[in-house]
Deep mutational scan, measured.
Amino acid sequence: NQASVVANQLIPINTALTLVAMRSEVVTPVGIPAEDIPRLVSMQVNRAVPLGTTLMPDMVKGYA
């Protein structure tokens, strides 16, 4: 099972992602792969992401 990126805190809309804001977890459905965490740092989310939410490619500006 592949680990996905999960919000480690509430991430407000247009907030730049940080290492502290993300964690890796095996979840269903699978979201952005955990190995992409370094690439996600400083990218912005295009919606509010609640704690525990799996990050999907369409939630991160410039990711997809």
Score class of each variant (00 low, 15 high):
N1T: 15
N1E: 15
N1F: 12
N1W: 14
N1V: 15
N1G: 15
N1A: 15
N1P: 15
Q2G: 14
Q2F: 13
Q2H: 11
Q2S: 12
A3Y: 12
A3M: 12
A3P: 12
A3D: 05
A3N: 08
A3G: 09
A3I: 06
S4I: 04
S4T: 04
S4V: 01
S4F: 03
V5Q: 00
V5F: 04
V5I: 11
V5Y: 03
V5D: 00
V5A: 08
V5N: 00
V6H: 00
V6Y: 02
V6Q: 03
V6P: 01
V6M: 04
A7W: 03
A7C: 05
A7Q: 02
N8A: 14
N8Q: 07
N8F: 05
N8L: 05
Q9P: 02
L10F: 15
L10W: 11
L10G: 09
L10H: 14
P12S: 08
P12Q: 10
P12L: 10
P12A: 09
P12H: 11
I13T: 12
I13D: 10
I13K: 14
I13N: 14
N14C: 10
N14E: 07
N14G: 14
T15A: 11
T15L: 05
A16N: 08
A16D: 07
A16F: 15
A16Y: 15
L17P: 00
L17C: 05
T18P: 01
T18Y: 06
T18D: 06
T18R: 08
T18M: 07
L19P: 06
V20A: 15
A21H: 15
A21Y: 15
A21G: 07
M22Q: 01
M22C: 05
R23G: 08
R23Q: 03
R23M: 05
S24D: 06
E25K: 09
E25H: 07
E25C: 09
V26I: 13
V26C: 11
V26L: 13
V27K: 06
V27R: 12
V27L: 04
V27C: 07
T28S: 11
T28Q: 11
T28P: 01
T28R: 07
T28C: 11
T28H: 11
T28K: 08
P29W: 05
P29H: 04
P29D: 04
V30D: 08
V30H: 13
V30L: 15
V30G: 08
V30K: 11
G31Q: 01
G31L: 02
G31I: 02
I32A: 00
I32W: 01
I32N: 01
I32D: 01
P33E: 02
P33K: 07
P33H: 10
P33R: 09
P33F: 09
P33G: 04
P33A: 07
P33D: 05
A34Y: 06
A34M: 06
A34Q: 04
A34W: 06
A34T: 05
A34F: 05
A34G: 07
E35A: 14
E35M: 10
E35W: 11
D36F: 12
D36Q: 12
D36K: 10
D36R: 09
D36N: 12
D36P: 00
I37M: 13
I37L: 11
I37W: 02
I37N: 02
I37Q: 01
I37C: 03
I37E: 02
P38F: 14
P38L: 14
P38E: 10
P38D: 10
P38W: 14
P38G: 10
P38I: 09
R39N: 09
R39E: 07
R39T: 09
L40T: 00
L40E: 00
L40R: 00
V41C: 06
V41P: 00
V41A: 04
V41M: 06
V41L: 12
V41F: 00
V41N: 04
S42V: 04
S42A: 12
S42H: 15
Q44A: 09
Q44E: 09
Q44F: 15
Q44R: 15
Q44C: 11
Q44H: 15
V45L: 07
V45Q: 00
V45N: 00
V45P: 00
V45T: 09
N46T: 13
N46D: 07
N46K: 09
N46I: 12
R47Q: 12
R47K: 09
R47M: 09
R47A: 08
R47N: 05
R47P: 03
A48M: 14
V49C: 06
V49T: 03
V49I: 15
P50D: 09
P50G: 09
L51T: 15
L51Q: 13
L51S: 14
L51M: 15
L51V: 15
G52D: 09
G52F: 04
G52K: 01
G52Y: 03
T53V: 12
T53L: 10
T53Q: 12
T53K: 09
T53M: 14
T54Q: 01
T54L: 04
L55H: 01
M56Q: 12
M56T: 11
M56R: 08
M56V: 07
P57N: 04
P57D: 05
P57T: 05
D58R: 09
D58T: 11
M59D: 09
M59L: 03
M59N: 04
M59P: 02
V60E: 03
V60L: 07
V60R: 02
K61T: 14
K61V: 14
K61W: 12
G62Y: 08
G62E: 08
Y63E: 02
Y63R: 01
Y63P: 02
Y63S: 05
A64Y: 09
A64L: 13
A64V: 14
A64F: 11
